[in-house]
Design a binder for these strands. Sequence first.
DNA 1: CCTGTAATCAACCGAATGGTTGAACAAGGG
DNA 2: CCCTTGTTCAACCATTCGGTTGATTACAGG
Lengths: 114, 114
Amino acid sequence: MAADALSRVFSALADPTRRDMVARLSIADATVNELAEPYEVSVQAVSKHLRVLEDAGLVTRTRDAQRRPVHLEAEVFDLMTKWIERYQRQAEERYRRLDDVLRDLPDDTEGERE
Amino acid sequence: MAADALSRVFSALADPTRRDMVARLSIADATVNELAEPYEVSVQAVSKHLRVLEDAGLVTRTRDAQRRPVHLEAEVFDLMTKWIERYQRQAEERYRRLDDVLRDLPDDTEGERE
DNA sequence: CCTGTAATCAACCGAATGGTTGAACAAGGG
DNA sequence: CCCTTGTTCAACCATTCGGTTGATTACAGG
């Protein structure tokens, strides 16, 4: 698990169950048992999922008696959106430039490639 | 690989090599060999990575003689950003509401926990 | 103090992942 | 027509992943 931060976040969200947990945690904090309740898997499995989310920095766990309420840390999303938007923008810009190039092409180069 | 589309995209981008390929493809299309050149892994490994990106809908491959130029399909990013932004927004809003609640609390209920 | 409850740890299992090497296939170019 | 180039397929291997069950730890409360 020595992966970089970005890999950990993407990887953590690559699982539907974990995404669903994130979705629910965006509404309210919850304990492990509360989180586990709707799923068919064991509470241990949910605990493991939470560990993955925690390692990715997406959630934090505090202590309240026996309970360990899980809290969503939404700032980590920024890491992803920054990365995505960068290449999204770059690809769009490139596409725009390609349009310009095609528009400025002399007529005899019709269907050269694609 | 019967995972849902969102899982496939997140999973595909959870690998640093694949993210780097996406980054490079945002500049220009490239062939498999061109893509493989900077990495220490075999060209077969890169081909496998491309398959993952293709299954996620992040790239398409056309044919140009023996070459198979790879092209980035940036629209798929939207799928992710939509998902992220939704819960990012929800978490922020929840945080804002929490602030309101705390501000309006009577003084004697200090650390009750929700 | 002892019991019940919440959660994690530990060991294990099967499937998926990322890598390898070697063979096969596809398409041009001499 | 054959050979070279570009790419993929196939089989294999080690590691990781998501899940299980059973044991263990950490508190709270009667």
